[in-house]
């Protein structure tokens, strides 16, 4: 499934106003969306870029016939649970989880972000145990609070990322119980909302259909001009690949210790 995306920023002061405008545009009432996102990172460190290409001479001759495959990328993935406000009151939820994978957006500037996404519903069992068994490490979790509209083929999501306050690095697994809703704080201290307009194209990457979606999304961008400026961000800010981090000199002992 391909997803076409545009993003815009809405200051907190204008949130109510934009909600009303969008209700008028889409001719529907906003639908509350609450999602819990747990981010996982593969355990294995990615290979050094170019390490698949043989270096040096003597070894290379022997292994010349070996198939040279590109270094496989590793991706951050999400476990997503759709919640309601009641879940926050009870501090636990039985809502089903979905395993979500977003690819790096396509290259090529079409004016909108195009990326491959896939979601797999998780039917039963412990999602965290499943992810850990597949060699994933828990990174962090955040909550998404927003409202959704549907306008023609466009999904409009006006949302905000909420996090639990306090240190995050110490945790190794997602919290077993939900926090209270009031204890969550916006990731962005100014409380700015993000307007995300997206079209999902299910047909397996048919270019004509994607172009049609791009056109429709651009028409929506024009419609919103002057209210919210929608734009396609740099594709690398949506990069879900795990980065290879070379730190060539970091493991050297400091000179004082060596002497």
């Amino acid at each position: 499934m391909h997803e076409l995306l545009l993003f815009g920023l809405v200051p907190r002061a204008r949130h109510e106003q934009v909600l009303k405008i969008l209700a008028g545009v889409a001719a529907m009432q906003p639908q509350r969306v609450l999602e819990r996102h747990v981010v996982y990172k593969p355990q294995r460190e990615p290979d050094e870029p170019g390490s698949n290409i043989r270096r040096g001479a003597s070894q290379g001759i022997v292994q010349k016939q070996a198939k040279q495959t590109a270094a496989r990328d590793l991706y951050f993935t999400h476990m997503v649970q759709t919640l309601t406000e009641d879940d926050f009151k009870e501090q636990k939820s039985q809502a089903p989880w979905t395993h979500q994978f977003n690819d790096v957006p396509d290259t090529g500037d079409r004016g909108v972000t195009v990326r491959m996404v896939s979601g797999t519903d998780f039917v039963e069992g412990d999602p965290h145990a499943y992810m850990a068994a597949f060699g994933n490490n828990f990174v962090s979790e955040h909550y998404m609070d927003g409202h959704r509209y549907v306008h023609k083929n466009i999904l409009i999501l006006l949302h905000q990322v909420l996090t639990e306050p306090g240190p995050r690095s110490a945790e190794q697994s997602p919290k077993p119980s939900l926090p209270t809703f009031d204890s969550l704080t916006p990731l962005d201290p100014s409380g700015t909302y993000i307007l995300q307009a997206s079209i999902r194209v299910v047909d397996n990457g048919s270019p004509a259909l994607i172009d049609l979606g791009v056109e429709e999304l651009k028409a929506f961008k024009n419609l919103m001009k002057g209210c919210v400026e929608l734009d396609a961000p740099d594709r690398l800010v949506l990069d879900t690949r795990v980065k290879y981090q070379a730190r060539p000199f970091a493991n050297l002992q400091p000179p004082a210790a060596a002497a």
Partner: peptide, 19 residues
């Protein structure tokens, strides 16, 4: 004390990589 808003890129990166 109105805090400055985070750039969109930072929020999107947080949403995709969790950090």
């Amino acid at each position: 004390t109105e805090p400055p808003r985070l750039p969109l890129g930072t929020v999107l990166t947080y949403m995709s990589t969790g950090a």
